[in-house]
Structures are given as C-alpha cells and as structure tokens.
Design a protein around this nucleic acid. Structure first.
Lengths: 206, 206, 206, 206
DNA sequence: AATGAATGAGAATTCATTCAT
DNA sequence: GATGAATGAATTCTCATTCAT
C-alpha cells in the first residue's frame, strides 16, 4: 500500500523504526510484540531492524532512550528555573502532564511496559530515581526548616507515585490535564485538609 | 522412585502449586517464567498444573486471585469500620504497608508483574479501581463540603498512586513500614505545607 | 508412513536420534544439515532433539562421542595385547579397516565432517592425538634401539595419516579391506624399498 | 570520505579480495566466515565481491584455485625432472613441506576447510587425486618389477595421506620442515624397519 | 566504478500444551 | 491420580544476495 520500499537515509529510517516500535510496544507490551510485527508496522524488513538495532532488547532500549530524552527535553524547556520551589513544582507538574497528554504512547512505553522484562526494570528504576531525587531537592528547598534527607526522599517517592498514577490516567484519556494538574498541586502543598472548596477547614473529625 | 509421587488432597496440592507459581512469577515476571520452572518448583509434573489450572494464563489468574483475597482479608480484618474517615485512612495505610512488608512476593506479583500481559492489565486495573473507589468514598466522607465525584476520584487516584509507590519501596526493603505509614498519613492530610516541623508555614517563597 | 508416533523409552529414542543424526551429518556435513532434516530422518519432532541434546552442537558432540566409543571398543575387543608390537600393529590396522568398512557413516562423521566447525576441530584433534601416541609407543617398542620420542611421534603422525587416507578410501568403497590392510602393513614395516616382489632391490635409477 | 574508495585496476582488486578471503576462510572455515567479514577485511564493499566473484561459493572456488596454482607452480619450479624417481620423490616432499611452511593459510584453506562444503569436497578430491596419480607413477617408475596399477595407486594414497598429515603439522608450526622431510623420505623408502639409527636391522620380533 | 540500503529465505531454539500409559 | 514422552507453532536472529544511486 504505502510502497515503503524507498531508499531512505539512515537517520530517517531510524526514526521510522523507532516510531513503529514505540507504537507497537506501547500497545502490546515488550514480550507480546514480535519483531515481525514491528517490521511490518515500520514497513521495512526484519533484517533492517537487526541491522540498525542489533536485537529486540536493544531496540526496546533505543525506544526507551529516545522517549526519555524527548520527555526530559520537553519538560526542561518548559520550566523556568528562576521560579520559587513552590512555583517550580507546580510548573513541572503541569508541564509533565501536558507532555504526557500529547505523547501518550511514549508514556506507556516508558513506565508501564518497561517493567515487563527484567532487562529494563533496572533502567526504569534508575530514571524514576533521578526524578525522585530532583523532587526531593525541590521539597527540601521549599520547606523552611529542613529535616534529614531520608524523609524528603520518601515524600518524593510518594509524590512521584501520585504523579505517575495521575499521568497514567491522563495518558489513557481518563483525566483532563489542567484539572489534574491543579488537583495535584493543591494536594501536594495543602494536603487533603485543603480539599477543594474547603480551604480553611481542619481535617474533618466526627 | 523419586519422591513427590504422593497422593495429596486437592486443596493442599493447589496451595503448593500456587505457592511455587507466585514465587517464580514474582521473581522473573509472567513471560519470563516457564511452566516447566513452576512445575519443578512445585515438585509436580506439568500435566498436573494443566489439570488444576488449565493454562498458564489461568494459573497466573489464580495467583492473582489468591493473593488479592489474602490481601483484602488481611486489611479488612485489621481495620475498625467504626473509626472516623480520618482514622480509617490512617489505619488502612498502616495495615496495607504492614501486609506488604510481610508478603513481599505477593505484592510484586500483584502490581508489578501483572501488567506484563495484556491479559491481566485489565484485572489489575479493576482491582486498583475498587481501592480507588473506596478511598474516594473515604475522602468524600472526611471532607466537610463535598464536591462533584470526579475530583474526589482523581484525588483518590493520586493517593493510591502515592501509596503504591511507597508500598513498592517497602516491598523491596527500602523503606521502614512505620515511618512510611506516618509520612503518608501526614502527607495526605496536611500536604507539603505541613511538612515536618513546619506546621503553620505558608509555602516558602524566596 | 512409518508411523513413528509411538511412545518409546528414553534409551531407544536416543539411539534412534543419534542414528539419524550420524547418517545426515555424515552425508551433508555439520553446517549443511539442519535440525529439521535430522528430526525428519529420526521421525520425531524438533523439540525432542532439543529436549534430549540441548543444541545442535551438543547433538553433534553426542554423535562424535558415540561413534568414537563404538570404534574404540570394536578395535579394542579385536586385538590381542599379548602379540609382538609388529603383530599388534598389523592386527590393529586390519581391525580398524574392517570396522570402518562395516561402519562407513561413522568414519566419515568422525574424521571428515568434524573439522567443519571450530567447535569440534579440537575434539577430533585430541582423539587423533591419542591414537598417534599409541602408535608412537608401538613403534618405540618395536624398534631395537629407541631414539628420542620426538621422531617416533612424527613417524606416528605420518603412519596415522596414511592410515586415515586409506581408511577414507575404504569408507567410500574404493578399496578392498584386506588388500588395503596388507599394503599398509607392508608399507609400514618395509617401506617402498620392499615394494611387492622386489625385496632386496635398491631404488631404481634411470 | 573514508578511505578505500580508490579506483584500483582489476587485477590488484582481485588479489586484495582473494588475500582477504583466504585469510578469513583459513581461520574460521567456509561456513563460519561471512561475506560481510571478507568484505570488511578486504576493505571493499560487498557488492564488489559479488561483482567480481558472483557468489560465496565461487569466491571460495577462486581462493582454492589460486592457492592450488601457486602451490603447483612453486613445487613445479622447485624440482628437477631429470632426477631419478627416488631423488624426485625426495625433492618433491621437501619442496612441498617448505612451501606449506611458508604459506600456512594457503594449506589450511586447501585441505582442511575445503571439505566443509559438499560443493568443494569434489574439487579437493580431484586435486588430491592428481597428486596421487603422480606419486603413483613415480612409485611405478622407481620399482624394478611393476605390479598391477591398483597396488601402486593405493600405496600412493597412503603416502600422500602420510604427507598431508605431516604437512598439517608443519602448517601449525608443530613440526620442523627439514626433520619432517627427512623422516618422510626415510619412512617411504625404507619403512619402519629402517627406523632411525637402526639401519640394517630386520623387523623387531620378540 | 563503487556502495549504502534493503530483503527473502531459512536457521536454531523455546514454549505452552497434550497424549498414552 | 499422576507423569514421561511428545509436538505445533512461534520467535529471535543471520546470511547470502541484490537494488538504486
């Protein structure tokens, strides 16, 4: 149909392959996606995949890598480091959710499917750990009387977990980006005490 | 000749198989665990596995099912429904983390590996959704002036996400159960504004 | 046709597989024989081959091993160690050639095809080296005034090489066993000088 | 941009390719050497290989052919046809072993690897057969009272086999050329009876 | 003249799954 | 009730070979 037998320069083919691979992996997962299917989706032959990426594992790694870079760059370009920690956290959240909304396959491939194989659990854990570290530092900077690092770190774990969960909803189209961002920001800084429209309330006790 | 040719009552056999399956699945994931390995670990023959569970998918489903029941029962037995929503959330968090700490393979199988196959993403999503619903109702009950359901639901998504992230740390031995529980409870009700030792502060601004 | 779907005890299947494998390998060589073809020849499925032998390489190794054992045993059983070295060498030659004549595929697999893969060149070299050592010792024992080992060893190399070449002719049906054996024995002990019916002649010069 | 895009005269290119091919084939064997590797070693592109030689098989054939010619020429140039058969055999042996010592890759490619593929066993057999014929005629000429051809032929088979075995040792550096040549010559004309330092002895009998 | 880009065809290997005893 | 024996169907990966420029 698409007559994809054209001679393309290496760089273009690479993207074409990665696009197809990200798409298929994100839909069916690492193990349930065969190289045959990816080749078909990319409208090239299997040997090309192997020529460019060496193995299925490396191909998946390349997907991970590209998507992570794009994500990092997008979020990095979006935020203004001169903001206060408070504002910074807010704009990061907002930027992240917007990126994910605009690149749904990417997010799924990165966080959901990557755990499918022992070979990548590691990579994903490392990526996540970096984000957690960053958030942890933001928290530390945004709090008046800092405490030992351990607490901030675990708080960051929780916040990033919350963010991932919401992001997943965004990626499936089950959440509106702006509302989700507001909610997360509110939740983070004020906790449930400040649940919507209940600003000065103390935790409800019977 | 070799041992293991014992006649065991069905119920015992079943548990023996599920134990082995949960163990292997949780270590190597769904796709990277073969029926051979499970049969070997359970010290029975492969046909027995098929006799009892029909297929690999069903076996994994049975693992999921059993672990989920145990989890639900443990947490259910642990909490007192007569508490205030506030107290209830706290005791649920605490109970959940303690259960996970005591049943690490179980948690991993449930939440991490289950997403490996399309066949179970669904099941896990449903299980998670139930918990989210419950948390959502707790939030609604614990807040003075309720808002439309959507918001509470998404907040619950975030909270459960945070809980899962922390629980994962507990399951890998990277977090202390009691400290993690306290942190989560504080975070949930007071937000970051109420970060440790900073109770009435407003967000720090430079 | 042959309805080979019968349930056979392990030992029987093993031989059946090795028979087929030796046959195919000896005809087409290691690389040019696919596991498919061997499975078909053995009238079993490919997974059986892998179940029993693990890999193509191991299967070939098993062929080599079995054929070598049979060869060694046959020759060992055939000779009388109480003979003089002279007689011994003669009866070994005769026994070897007779074995090869009766087991042509075996010989080819052992000596010709085994060199096809780097993986086995080693094994064959070792096997040959043992035979050379043995011949070397026979020569040493059969000669009045022994010399340093080095010479006997290289002589043994030459004799074994001659033997292999003749054996190959036997295996292809191009040489009569008895005549070949007599010729080799004569050649070994008397050299060309003692070529048939020319016992005391000096080399003919024009 | 990269080097190697030079325009070279056909003859030079051909040698460059054959050199690389002989080198790689002799190290890894026919089947275990890919066209990619040869092209890389020759510092040209694969299509060039195909342009010049048509197929892998033909390329190997060309290697065989060139090496055989060189071998034949070298040995032919080295010997003096006016010698007696006795001297002739001696000088051929000596010349052959010296050539092999000086061109190890060549020998390996010719005799060892060529048998790897059915496609060349034939060629090698033919080449060997020619040598055997020649030796056979030398033997006939060097013996006073000729016998039926069959015997001389098989003797030649044995002698050439012995020669190949020794030559292989020379090619691996495990034998000294001159000692090996002397030993072979002695062995051929006098047999084991005349084992070194035992010139007039009759075969040892207990 | 020379090559980067591309592929058809097939190889080894691994599973989940099922008989026949 | 329990299992050793057996396989159909994929899957990953490689290689000799050929276009299009």
């Amino acid at each position: 149909m698409a007559g994809g037998t054209k001679r393309l320069p290496r760089a273009v083919r690479e993207q074409q392959m990665l696009d197809a691979a990200v798409q298929m992996f994100s839909v069916n997962g690492y193990h349930e996606t065969s190289m045959d299917v990816i080749a078909a989706a990319a409208e090239i032959s299997k040997p090309m995949l192997y020529l460019y990426y060496g193995s299925k594992e490396e191909l998946f790694g390349a997907c991970l890598s590209r998507e992570l870079s794009r994500f990092t760059e997008a979020v990095g370009a979006d935020i203004d480091l001169k903001q206060s920690p408070h504002e910074l956290l807010g704009s990061v959240i907002s930027s992240v959710l917007r990126y994910i909304d605009a690149n749904r396959a990417s997010w799924i491939v990165l966080y959901t499917q990557a755990t499918s194989s022992q070979a990548f659990a590691h990579t994903v854990r490392e990526g996540r750990e970096k984000i957690i570290e960053m958030v942890s530092r933001l928290l530390e900077a945004g709090t008046r009387h800092p405490e030992p690092d351990a607490d901030f770190h675990m708080m960051a774990v929780a916040l990033v977990g919350a963010g991932e969960a919401v992001a997943t909803r965004v990626s499936t189209g089950d959440a509106d980006v702006d509302e989700a961002a507001d909610m997360l920001i509110n939740l983070f800084w004020r906790g449930l005490k400040g649940a919507p429209a209940d600003k000065e309330a103390s935790p409800a006790t019977p």
